[in-house]
Amino acid sequence: MNGVLTQNLLVFGGILFVIGMVGFLTRRSLILMFLSLEMMLSGVSVNLIAFSRHHQNYQGQILAIMVLTIAACEAAIALALVVSLFRRKATLDIAAWDELSETLVPKAIEVSITLTDPNLAFPKLTPAGLDPMSHPISAHFDDQSSAGGERENASMREAGSHA
């Protein structure tokens, strides 16, 4: 029974690892690729814990703690890298950093897809306040508010009563 449980958990760990790998291969955003890596690591942790339970000792758990530590280090470094890479090119696309990749491999054709949902409905909100198009705020708002603040307030009150 214990062995069967171990086998099932090993398969589960494999599933997690494969999901992480597929995510790493398909995802193109730096952050999501990093999350895929973390998912692969959690699959490995499941494996280690399953063996720890199977052999009734602490070695697997301790190895899992080490994996957790390294994952934390990796998270810190990876997020710092993401920040500094984003500062350079203002994009999270991994394809923006393929200068070192092979030139023989043809690049994936960039198809611009737009998400169109026919049932997309925006909520209807009652407009509040002044319409900024008809009542533009001047650049010298502070000067005006000190000088003609009363007048502004009056017009605002008027518009509010109309609405």
């Binding site: 291969l25 398909t26 995802r27 193109r28 994009t91 999270l92 696309d93 991994i94 960039e110 998400l115």
Partner: peptide
């Protein structure tokens, strides 16, 4: 973004 929509 396009890189989020289109998988590799």
């Amino acid at each position: 973004r396009n890189y989020d929509i289109q998988l590799n």
